[in-house]
Structures are given as C-alpha cells and as structure tokens.
Amino acid sequence: MLVYLRQRIISSLLPLVVVVVGVFALARLTGNPASLYLPLNATEQMRADFMAREGLDQPLLVQMADYFGGVLRLDFGESLRTGEPAAAMALRAFPATLQLAATTMVIAIVAAVLVGCWAALKPNGVADRISSFVSMAAASIPDFWLAIVGIWIFAITLGWLPTSGVSGPEAWILPIATLMLRPFGVLVQIVRGAMVSALSEPYIKLARSKGASDARVVTHHALRNAAAPALTVAGDLAVGLVNGAVVVETIFGWPGIGKLMIDSILQRDFAVLQAAVLITAIAIFILNILIDIGYALLDARVRPTVKA
C-alpha cells in the first residue's frame, strides 16, 4: 500500500505541473488584462507602464520561468484585482467550498443509500417507481434555476430560510439542497441497481431463507456489495463539487473557490486563477487517491480474489 501511495503521489506531480502550465498559457490567450485594470481613457504610456509593472511585456517563457521560480519560493504572485497575495485568496476560499462539498456529499450519500435500499427491496413496486422518477428528475434540473426557485419559495414566500450568505446553520440549507440533488439523483439509481442485483444473488437468498430480516440482509450483505460502484460514482461527483460549485456559489454569495475562479477568469486575474487551480488540482488528486484506497479496502473485503 505504501509503495502504491508513493508511486501514485510521484506520478501525480507531473500532471499537477501540466495543469498549472496549461492554465498559465491558456489564461494568457484570453487577452491582455491592461484595459480591464486601467481607466477607459488610459494613455499608451500608462498601458506600457502597467504591462511592465506586471511583467506582461516579457515573452511567455520568461513569464513562466519567473512564475515557477516564485512558486518554488512559495510566492504565487499577487492579485491584479485586489493586490493581495494570490495564494492567500485561494486558501481562504477553498475551505468554504470544501465544507460545502463535504457536507453535500455526506448528506447525498446517506439519503441515496436509504432511498436506494428502500426502492430495491421491492423492485418495480410503488416506492421504486416513485424514487426512480424523483431521482431522475432531481438529477436533471438546472441548478441555478432550482436555486432561484428555492430562494423564491423558502426565503421570500415562506420566510423560513435566509436567501443567501454564510450567516448561520440555516444558511447552509438552500445551497446544500441545490447542490445535493444531482449527486443524490445519480447515486439513488446506482445504489438501487446494485442492490437489486445483489439481493438476487444466491448467497443473499440463502441468508434470507435462513430467516435473516430484511434489515439484516440489506445492511450486512447487499449493501456491502453495492458500496463499491457507489463509492466510485460518488467520487466522481465529489470531484465535480470540489472543482467549484460555481453556480451555487455565485447565486448564494458563498465565498468559495468556484466563485473565485470564475471571477479571476473573467477579470483576467492570472495569479489568482493559477493559485486556485493548483489548490483544486491538488485536492482532486488527493481525493482520487482516497477513492482508490477506499476501493482497494472494499475490494479486499468483498472480492478478495479480484486483483488487488
């Protein structure tokens, strides 16, 4: 395991560099930030001063060498927009996204497992039909639209929840509910599918015939079988969330990394963009490794014969 981890970490370093280099180069393709940061009537002289001050008048390779030189000294540059160190801005925003994503995934997984199991107990029963329909619908509604409808109903009409912001526990409800729907919808279907086939396996039938209760069969036997595919899909969904719940963050004023990223893209704030991408890329690599480990553990328990 340790050997695997070490290899995995080493082999992940190069992609990290590739991501940052790619972002660095692509970002500079989107045009010169000077006109965004200078007054509309800026003179040529002011434009040239700006470019020189930000090092944007250098050839791309020189800029890149400077940047990576800085990164080695933990200097990620400064934001054009705010003048703050870019790394500080990214590090400040990331936990907000991480907390939101983690809470969302935990709730979505628990809810999906419960609903999926309930549906799988009687395949094609009423509960199954309803839950499949609801979960499919949940996974297919545009999130920004749902968020706005949610605000309209729960914050304006009913007045139960705050519209937006990060002001207290109840402010988490709408963003999480909005973010949760797609993972929940997808996972319900995965869990249900896996459970249905697990429940029809001979050894489950055996357990049942020995008089094990539904609850015991589900929790001790079938669920374990269903865990592997669910984990994988959940992992992919989590990666999506970590990469920034841009839309939800934008609407609810959530100070997360997704909002920071889109703002810095639109504002051509290159240093911040690079720092934000680096952080999320690292997080995604870590998450992928965790999923692998989780899967290896499950695999070892469930199917020891399959390759480790």
């Binding site: 991501v19 790619g22 692509l26 393709l29 989107t30 990666v239 990223m261 963009l273 992928n288």
Partner: peptide
C-alpha cells in the same frame, strides 16, 4: 495506461470554465 490516466487527471482537474472563456475569446 499510466500516462493515459494521468492525462485524464489533468483534464478533470482543469477548470472547464477557463477553457470555455479561452475558446469564446480566441
């Protein structure tokens, strides 16, 4: 296999929004 998987990692952790802006801009 390893290289392909790492390329997949790169694409997945790459901000697709940036890609969108680049394409729209360029």
């Amino acid at each position: 296999e390893t290289i392909s998987m790492r390329i997949a990692d790169v694409i997945m952790s790459f901000p697709s929004l940036l890609l969108a802006v680049v394409v729209l801009y360029v």
